[in-house]
Each structure stands twice: as structure tokens, then as C-alpha cells.
Amino acid sequence: MSKILVIEDDSVLQQAYKDKFERNGFQVICAVSGEEGIQTAAKEIPDLIILDIILVGNLTGEDVLKQIKLNPKISSIPVVIMTNLDDKMFKFYDMGANWYFVKATTTLEQVLNKIKEILNHN
């Protein structure tokens, strides 16, 4: 069973991801802050990370992605950026993100399909 780490500070959205992905056969672990996300990623080694950009705490999604890519233990884990900031796409692709979704214009079904596609590809 593939393991997905969701780094998202909004509990309602966290719930939505968890319900959707679990119903579709994934194991889901959640983190609310960047710090917690990086620790969990290093400990659990998920198959894919869903990463929000504006987070509680000192680290932004951007910092988290940077640290993931710098840590050889977790740098190869695919990262899907989920955000409502719609003008930073190219920046995150340059930093090594696998996909970039704008939450407001995306359905969960589209996210699920993209996750399946990335995991199958890997």
C-alpha cells in the first residue's frame, strides 16, 4: 500500500485528502507544519508528499521543498504542490516539484489521478 504524506495546516482540507486517498487504497499520514512534515518524511519515508505552501510555523512550503531536496534520504520522493497561490508555478518546478495544482480550480479526482500517474511512473 503506497504511503502519502500530506503537509497541510488546514484541518478541513487535511480531512478531505485523507478521506479521498484512503478510500482509494492509500495510507495517509498528515503533518500541519513544515518542521513536522520534514521530520515525518525522514522517519516514515512516504511514496509521495502533498505539500501546501503557506503553512503554520516558521517554514513555508518553499523552505520544506528546499530541505527535502537537500536531504539525500528523502530527496527522490515525488512532491505535488497544492496551493492557492497561482503565480509561483515555474519557481516550484525549477525547485524540483513534480506537479503544481491550484486548489480552487482543481478537483480531488484530478489530484488522485495525478498521484496514481506519478506513482505508476516511478
Binding site: I54, T83, N84
Partner: peptide, 11 residues
């Protein structure tokens, strides 16, 4: 604002 207003709508 773009972030804060869109998050509840996404939910």
C-alpha cells in the same frame, strides 16, 4: 487574500 479566500472554497 487569494490564499485565504480560496481555501474554504476549495474545502
Amino acid at each position: 487574500a487569494s490564499h485565504q479566500l480560496r481555501t474554504p472554497l476549495s474545502a
